[in-house]
Design a protein around this nucleic acid. Sequence first.
RNA 1: GGCAAGUUUACCGAGUGGCUAGGUGUGUGGCUGCAGACCAUAAUACGGGGGUUCAAGUCCCUCACUUGCCUCCA
Length: 448
Amino acid sequence: MEIYSTLTRSKEDFVTINDNRVNLFVCGPTVYDDAHIGHGRTYISFDTIKRYLEYKGYAVFYIQNVTDIDDKIINRSKESGIPSDELARKFEKRYREDMAKLNVNGVNLFARATDHMPEIIDQIQRLIDKGFAYETEDGVYFEIDTFDEFGKLSNRNVEELESHREIAETTKKNHQDFALWKKREGVDEPTWPSPWGDGRPGWHIEDTAITEYYFGEQYDVHGGGLDLIFPHHEAEITQMEAVSGKSPMVRYWLHTGFLNVNGEKMSKSLHNFITIRELLESYEPDTFRFFVLSTHYRSPIDFSKDSLHQSERSLERIRKFYEQLDVEVGDETYECDALAPHMKEFFDSMDDDFNTPKAIAAIFGLINDTKNELDDLSGEEKMAIKAFLDDASHILGVSFESEEVNAGSDDLLNLISEVRSELRANKQYDLSDKIRDNLQSLGYEIND
RNA sequence: GGCAAGUUUACCGAGUGGCUAGGUGUGUGGCUGCAGACCAUAAUACGGGGGUUCAAGUCCCUCACUUGCCUCCA
């Protein structure tokens, strides 16, 4: 299996640190508002990656941090009058509800920043002790001049960055030095005691404190959105490798591409901000999930109603095919010659940096190859196909079961259907068509 | 200005030098009273210009354009 890592900008063989164990960390949300469909894209991608690793036999431990203390939360708290901890809990809860609806359920541990203050403070103290960080009157900062490799993930160097220096902030030695600890500024903000006085942690330190605590100094995979490469992930590498003296902190850096809306970046000022909740008012979660997986996780993806509709139709085709496999699958393994090449393509594609669009194409290849010969296949062959589709469905996290609208189960619908049949027999098509149209607008489909 | 990712047929979207990606949409035919669904079938490609090669969407150079990051951001 090969995985593309941002650090080396190339695909590399996937080799874990400890046998079949994979320690996976993904940057979670800052919980100050509802999650949007861009978050959805990212977390669906990593959920699918985790599902696939588990399918391959790895024991994956997936941690996501929850940033529940941050400027944005404090500001929102002041605006709304809701205490910041209450606000953070509320949106964390809503975030997890949204994820559950999208069938994103692979996270083993949600680690809140505020639950890891001792680890955060301890890591900062060690950075100071080792001479990588210094205290000023308003906080504790990492001194990037002490760490030569700052910039290796994002391909930047300090000199270039300095050309963008704005008005110097007085307490920092260097403009690029980033905060590890921010000292209290006012009375109405949440603080924690520390050796440097009351205050709160900087944004980057929570992640390395959490991963060091649960995974140790080095681990396998770190993921997040493309926009986190700089400065966030760069700072993480800097902190962790400085404190541990070991490199690399992470073997594989995975970054998801952005989700744009109608070709534009999603932003509040453009009024094209779509939350997961809003989306799910109009679309099935599986449709969105299938839409996301129809593009490679690293590529940008353009969200539009038209694209979502295409995904809806594509998924329908798979479901119709699946419905025709009128067999029950047991625990045995089954053989089917017609399936083999498509199954191979599916798994080869997934092995190639989780190429879900290609894997999905393999499913369609299977459908096109076998849809007309299903009656000629043996029960065992059909079971093989069904077992494969069940696996694929589970890996992708998208159900291939049709939404059951069973006319036969409902007496009233049966009656209407019978009346319509009589009308058709009598060639009263205007009336029968009216019934059909009305039933369709109610969400019922008629197959004559 | 620096860094990064892109530019594939109507649209979405894979493509690891030579063999049909796939989907959606559209056309045509079949089935239908009609429509849908379904079945069959067809068409439309690799941003421009150079180069390497027996052979390039795929490698190299160059130009153009798009997007993102460089400040919080999934």
